[in-house]
Design a protein around this nucleic acid. Sequence first.
DNA 1: TATCAACAGTTGAGGCCGCAACTAAATTAT
DNA 2: ATAATTTAGTTGCGGCCTCAACTGTTGATA
Lengths: 147, 147
Amino acid sequence: MSETADIYNLLKDIFFLLDDGDRRLFGGYNLSVSRFYILWHLGNEPGISSRQLSDLMICDKSNITRLTKGLEADGLVTRQPHESDGRALRLYLTAEGEFVRQKALESHLAYNEQRFNYFSINEQQSLQEQLLGLKESLFGQLYEQPA
Amino acid sequence: MSETADIYNLLKDIFFLLDDGDRRLFGGYNLSVSRFYILWHLGNEPGISSRQLSDLMICDKSNITRLTKGLEADGLVTRQPHESDGRALRLYLTAEGEFVRQKALESHLAYNEQRFNYFSINEQQSLQEQLLGLKESLFGQLYEQPA
DNA sequence: TATCAACAGTTGAGGCCGCAACTAAATTAT
DNA sequence: ATAATTTAGTTGCGGCCTCAACTGTTGATA
């Protein structure tokens, strides 16, 4: 087994473990993991379009249509027509959306402190730098063909 | 933003980028990512039960029922009754399953070499050690409550 | 031995997700 | 100015996934 395969498998298993915990945590706020991430992104960048959001979430735009419609039906998000582009929407959090986002985010931050306390502060910084480099490298390869 | 939140977000984005590429790669073998991982695990541990496989894949056992039935219908997997436990199944690859597994695995290994060539060999070893520690720490917390 | 709890696997319901095909608006080219 | 191309968003389809409820088997206990 090569080193790169080991790293790949570790990253995959770590993600599944993190995601499994996230599902339980966000479920307590009537949110799926994806629904939470929409609230999170809209808090960071209010007025973003569906297309921009699907790029941030690395998913198909049709998925954003359905998730934001569901969040709108639950009163957490509004979808406004764009003021100059008749094709686009602007997505915003409602007051209730802001509130739910804040509560879920606080829980999630505390949960992450608990889950990553395995590392010392120095190790966290070193790992963060390595992962950032990897992410940027992968992002640059997004539209390349597999070997 | 805390360090642990940064690490969490990097891991999540990296997984989404890896998974997106995997989906395209395995699609060329008529496999979803999950279907490939079943072939992979059954090659490593032939005769494993559905329950053991769902533990390895960190997913619900009902998901294994449906995926293995689909793979059986496609002639890649067989589901045999367990010789001493009337409740359990033993899962095996067929000859065609072995063949497809080998071809897809070779492509995936080469693809991983390409994707992770960002790191030097020394960096790969260091990252691998850090991730292994994190995975084991998270695994130990699997049934703890979120803070 | 008779009962009861634990366990392997299945099914139905419902949410998530990508892909392909589509509509309508904006941009570019002629 | 008009036509061709690109872009934002939606919808139908089908695969993936968890959860809860269920069947049937095994193992522990009284």
